[in-house]
Every structure is written in C-alpha cells, then in structure tokens.
C-alpha cells in the first residue's frame, strides 16, 4: 500500500489559556485522492486539527508527517506548499482588489514568474468556473463566488491537499452547493485530496470516509454508511442524523419493511417502490 499523504501519530495539543487538551492522542492517515470529512460539534477539536496540519500550531506531543516530510518549524514552509486551506468567512480571505489579483497574490508571494503566473490565474479560475469574473471587485460577488475564488487562489499553487475549514457554513444553500460541486470536480479531475471539516452531514455523506471528533479525540471512523448507523449516538454528540436515515427509521417503526438505513432519498424511494409495487 502507498505511503499515506497525511500521517498523524499520537498527536496532542493544548491551548495555553485552557485547562483541557484540545486534541488528545490523535492517530490518523489520509490517502492520496481521498475525500475525508471530519465532523464534530463546536469545540470538539476539529478546527484545531486543521491548524496543526498546516503548522499554524505545533503538537505538544506526537508527530505529523505530510507527504513523508515530518512537520517541524524547519520544514513548515515545505509542508505549507503541499496544503491549501479555505476558511469559513468569505470576506476575511479576499486580499486582492479584483478576482485575478486575489488569485495572483499567493503566486506572487511564492515568486512565480509573471508569465507563468498569468497563465495559472486563468487556469485556476477556469477550474472553479469563475474565469468570466477576472476584473470584478469582491463586493460584487456572492459568498459562494468568493469562496470559489479562494479555492482558485489555493489550487493555483498546486497543493496536494486542500483543507476546507467549515468553508460552506456561512453560505446560503445555493452557495454551499456551488462550493461542494466545485471541490468534487477538483477531487475527481485534478486528483486533489480533500479534508473537509464540517458539521453539515449532507456534505459529509458525500465523503469517502468520515471521522467523528468528540472532546478532542477521534470518537469513530468509518464510511458514511457506517457512521450514519450510529443514529441517536450522533445526536448525543451534538450532531444530527441525515434526513433519509431518519425517515427510514420512522417508517420501519411504523411497520414498513426496510432492509437497511438509506443514505440518499433516491435510494430510499427506489427501495420503497421495488418492495411495494407488486404483491
């Protein structure tokens, strides 16, 4: 098996101002091309984990390796070249005065020659479907469009991994869909590895694998199907159960035979149709 792209061994972290560790004994591997969702209630440690991956904080114990490079103060810049982050608030991460300047900002900081830069800006904006907005100013854009520009700024630097730190939580439903569709396309076509930190379970349901965080620890890990079997346990953890799972459960309680929980509405409707269309 290939070496994992992200490797955490027994990682712990504590903020100076707090009495309890924010992360405790985290072991984690993320593989190339994977979409990993990290879910958990506010304060469960999921955003701290993202910050550690990017060297914004350093673990108090344990080690982190990205693409085989062990993360230390000496290697942090090499590691950051591998990882792009998209944060929650669309307005806090727009630094340029126009869309193309914003995407160019990171490239310029990395000393990319001007001709290569121009090409990469257009290319990145094409990939997020924002190429027709080159000279637009940020206040003319919707939240979803701003987040797509942020993604373009990140992919222009050609990272191996993109971390979405609740990147859709401030968007309206349409904006949320735009951003997720864009990321799924990038994962598929550019083979980018995605780590998505979220409490939107509909979004997590699209991941290859889900990690549930609670009180700074990994509480459970599995495919969406496995995680959503947790049922009421998810509610106790401050999360929710996806709608199709809730409906399957209630229908079963009301005497309708269903072989399992269904993760999508389409699957559930199809199952109801096949099992009840003939006698």
């Amino acid at each position: 098996m290939k070496e994992p792209l992200v490797f955490l061994s027994n990682v712990s972290f504590q903020y100076d101002s707090q009495e309890r560790p924010a992360l405790n004994g985290i072991n984690l591997e993320v593989h190339e091309g994977e979409w990993l969702a990290i879910v958990g209630h506010n304060g469960s440690g999921k955003s701290t984990l993202a910050r550690l991956l990017n060297g914004l904080h350093y673990p108090k114990e344990g080690t982190i390796a990205i693409s085989g490079i062990q993360l230390t103060e000496e290697t942090v810049w090499d590691v950051r070249r591998q990882i792009g982050m998209v944060f929650q608030n669309p307005d806090n991460q727009f630094v340029g005065t126009t869309v193309q300047d914003d995407v160019a900002f990171g490239l310029e900081n990395n000393g990319i020659p001007a001709d290569v830069m121009a090409e990469r800006v257009v290319d990145a904006l094409n990939k997020v479907n924002m190429a027709s907005f080159l000279d637009q100013e940020p206040h003319h854009l919707s939240g979803g469009q701003k987040q797509r520009v942020a993604i373009a700024g990140v992919i222009a630097l050609r990272p191996a991994i993109i971390i979405l730190d609740e990147a859709t939580s401030m968007l309206d439903p349409r904006g949320r869909e735009e951003v997720i569709d864009t990321m799924m396309k990038l994962q598929d076509q550019e083979k980018i590895t995605v780590i998505s930190i979220t409490h939107d379970l509909e979004e997590a349901a699209k991941a290859d694998r889900i990690i549930v965080m609670n009180k700074g620890e990994i509480y459970r890990e599995g495919t969406p199907e496995e995680i959503f079997q947790m049922d009421e346990e998810l509610v106790e953890l401050g999360l929710d159960i996806p709608f199709p799972v809730k409906i399957s459960k209630q229908l079963r309680e009301k005497g309708i035979n269903l072989s399992r929980h269904y993760l999508t509405e389409e699957e559930l409707v199809a199952e109801l149709w096949t099992s009840h269309s003939k006698m």
Binding site: H41, M170, L201, V235, L239
Partner: peptide, 8 residues
Amino acid sequence: TAGLDPRG
C-alpha cells in the same frame, strides 16, 4: 443559527 452545529 448560521455557523452553529446542529445541536446549537
């Protein structure tokens, strides 16, 4: 409730 987790 924007930005809060489901319980919140």
